[in-house]
């Protein structure tokens, strides 16, 4: 039987060695991981605007299709606008804006900025709004693309860090996301977010069904999280949209 001193020494050395190995691995691999994350974000933005992208062609497609990247403040003023070709894909302020920080500022009642991407298909503008919220186990995020009336939804994508597979994690499936196409964000000129409805939109009044989608059975908390995320992120754009009209 070893002495207590030996055990302590063994444990300390082990911890230091392991810490050194893990932190150097994390540092070495970080550039690759960041690149993958950026590509994944581009893929999300493109897919929400119905531009099918793979990891291989996402950067090129993003370069070709995204015509403008805008940063807006909470009063609806444009802070920065970069047209296609002015910056490398993934390098604009709008793209790298940390939505988590901005939403935190919003929660504290401070001024904040929000990003907006513009794509063009068949001469018509599509606006893409990045989203961030909280699911059951961790963050959920996504993108919602709307027509140039800023109301009709063209497409959405959602992602999540750790929602339950088969239940909450279903938000990243095509079946769930397809429900959002054609829904409206405005009702008689007033903002009306899309809610994810437990029990299905059949439980809503007929004229409200255009603002709702069916929730996922067994994924109620994640569904509520998605609802809240949509409302919390989209309402920030109302001043901008009102100014524009």
């Amino acid at each position: 039987m070893q002495s207590n001193f030996y055990i302590f020494r063994y444990a300390s050395v082990m911890v230091i060695v392991v810490a050194a190995i893990l932190s150097s691995a994390a540092m070495l691999l970080k550039p690759y991981q960041e690149k993958n994350k950026a590509i994944d974000k581009m893929k999300g933005i493109l897919t929400s605007a119905n531009i099918e992208a793979t990891s291989e062609n996402a950067i090129q497609l993003y370069k070709d299709n995204i015509t403008e990247e805008i940063v807006i403040n909470n009063k609806g003023e444009i802070v920065e606008s970069k047209k296609k070709g002015e910056v490398e894909p993934g390098k604009s302020l709008a793209f790298s804006l940390d939505l988590k920080k901005e939403l935190y500022k919003k929660g504290r009642g401070e001024d904040f900025n929000i990003p907006l991407m513009v794509a063009e298909t068949n001469g018509k503008k599509i606006f893409i709004i990045p989203l961030l919220g909280t699911g059951l186990w961790g963050p959920v995020w996504g993108n919602i693309a709307v027509k140039d009336n800023f109301s009709t939804v063209v497409g959405v994508t959602f992602g999540h860090k750790a929602e339950t597979p088969g239940l909450g994690a279903e938000i990243d499936t095509k079946i769930f996301q397809a429900q959002f196409v054609g829904k409206e964000l405005f009702r008689d000129g007033k903002f009306q977010s899309i809610s994810v409805v437990k029990g299905g939109i059949g439980t809503m009044p007929n004229d409200m069904q255009i603002h709702g989608v069916d929730a996922i059975s067994g994924g109620t908390i994640t569904s509520v999280g998605v609802s809240d995320m949509l409302a919390n992120c989209l309402e920030n754009y109302v001043p901008f949209i009102n100014k524009r009209n």
Binding site: M14, V18, I21, L22, L29, Y32, N36, K37, I39
Partner: peptide, 20 residues
């Protein structure tokens, strides 16, 4: 500790090279 460190390494490598 041995298992957890190896798993973290695997996780990091997957994130870097096969993100999907």
């Amino acid at each position: 500790v041995v298992i957890a460190s190896l798993v973290i390494l695997v996780d990091q490598v997957l994130k870097a090279f096969v993100f999907d």
